[in-house]
Design a protein around this nucleic acid. Structure first.
Lengths: 232, 232
DNA sequence: CGGGCCCTTGAAGTTAGTCAAGATAAGTGG
DNA sequence: CCACTTATCTTGACTAACTTCAAGGGCCCG
């Protein structure tokens, strides 16, 4: 989204040098665990969730290549959420002092970090509006569209058909519904010809109609970064 | 939360020099409006909300002294939400180039911006979990505690009793409920001796019991900022 | 003192949750 | 590679939580 200078590019390559692979189902970070590193997803899909006192779970975020997480390590000692790999995933590992160094040597990169953060914050408010004010059906539809778009960002081969790597219970935990009700909503969307399902994959059959059900906005679009300082 | 250097302090004073006063009910920013400034709340209380296609509203954030908003002007041209003053409020106005300049001259201040952002992001996930996975009663209780704590941050006189500057409809729009149901929940909390109400003010009569109903965490606590670069 | 908002309460309607049971699919150890 | 175990999906019947609709009352402001 922004043309990096050679200096910035080299720095980023160094920063992201240390990588780590986690396999499907592995817990990378547990809620309240001490953390002092940040991660960038390079490959794969992950999710972050919180557990409430009554044992229920809310998935607060899905992570795809390019996403940074555990940025909250810049603020808290204990992780606010649990992070689990939904597929085998490759991560870059960054420690906190690196961010401090970056802020001094490459101010523009830090500004970009602020930008990323902001995108996420706005996406989080979209999800809040969805949870607070939309129907079960709309929430499920929104999730499907969102997942598809974000997978596509990493893999342009993906078009109308994509692997849903979630159980219906997980969809429920992301949308604030029960697995049973998610099942009914998927079935409805299928009966109405908007989607089809085939062994773990979802086919978007009528994207326009699906989009009409939702108030989904792709927050990675229409960025305006003209104000950034020059790169170094 | 961090000891600023004289240089940083002076810079901040300059940056926040331009102020603006808005009166109760005034709309500072309308959804989709073009925006190219950021604001810091100095006095008063505000809220940010989005409107959905069906006319319903989700309040996504309340703003108190010290909060920065419209940071999304760093990313988008159009405001993602509408911002309204709930009481007369005084704001500092900052333009986007100032942030770029800050990143170069005072890297630590930019890091602090990142920190603030992160606090908000985590608070947003708390609210998501509340909306998705807690009862109407718990959501209302959480909102009351949160409002009280955040008012207290600006005004240490506030203790068990605080001015609720919201209509029940607004409480509903923040918690994803209808005004009618908010009314019933407030009544319940009152009958159970947890709160009392008197002409627009709320009295927290049994904070421990109220807290037990909620999964409220004060995200402005327990920060760990040891990694910050030195100030200039 | 009249009008408009806000609050309150009851009754009825919807949406989503709970419980339960059977059918599939996906792992796992032999 | 098969048999077994366990997770996941599916569906129906019933229940609970929250919404909708409606009407009356209080209060503030002009």
């Amino acid at each position: 989204m922004v043309e990096l200078t050679p200096g910035e590019r080299n720095t980023l390559i160094q920063v992201e040098e240390r990588t780590r692979t986690v396999s499907r189902g592995a817990v990378l970070l547990r809620e309240h665990d001490r953390m002092d590193e940040l991660f960038v997803v390079r490959e794969g899909m992950m999710m972050a969730y919180v557990l409430l006192d009554d044992g229920s779970r809310q998935i607060v975020r899905f992570l795809f290549p390019g996403d940074i997480f555990a940025l909250s390590a810049l603020v808290y000692r204990g992780s606010p959420d649990t992070v689990v790999a939904l597929s085998t995933a490759v991560l870059s590992v960054i420690d906190r002092p690196t961010i401090a160094r970056l802020s001094e040597e490459h101010p523009r990169l830090l500004c970009l970090l602020l930008v990323l953060n902001q995108i996420e914050r706005v996406a989080a408010t979209d999800r809040m509006a969805g949870l607070g004010r939309t129907s079960a059906r709309a929430r499920v539809a929104t999730l499907l569209l969102d997942l598809r778009n974000r997978m596509r960002r990493a893999d342009m081969d993906i078009d109308a058909i994509f692997p849903l790597r979630l159980t219906q219970e997980e969809i429920g935990d992301a949308t604030g519904l029960t697995a049973v009700h998610v099942n009914r909503m998927l079935r409805q969307l299928e009966e109405d010809g908007m989607i089809a399902r085939e062994s773990g994959r979802v086919v978007i059959r009528d994207e326009a109609a699906l989009a009409r059900e939702t108030n989904y906005v792709d927050r990675y679009n229409k960025l305006d970064l003209g104000w950034l300082p020059p790169g170094r």
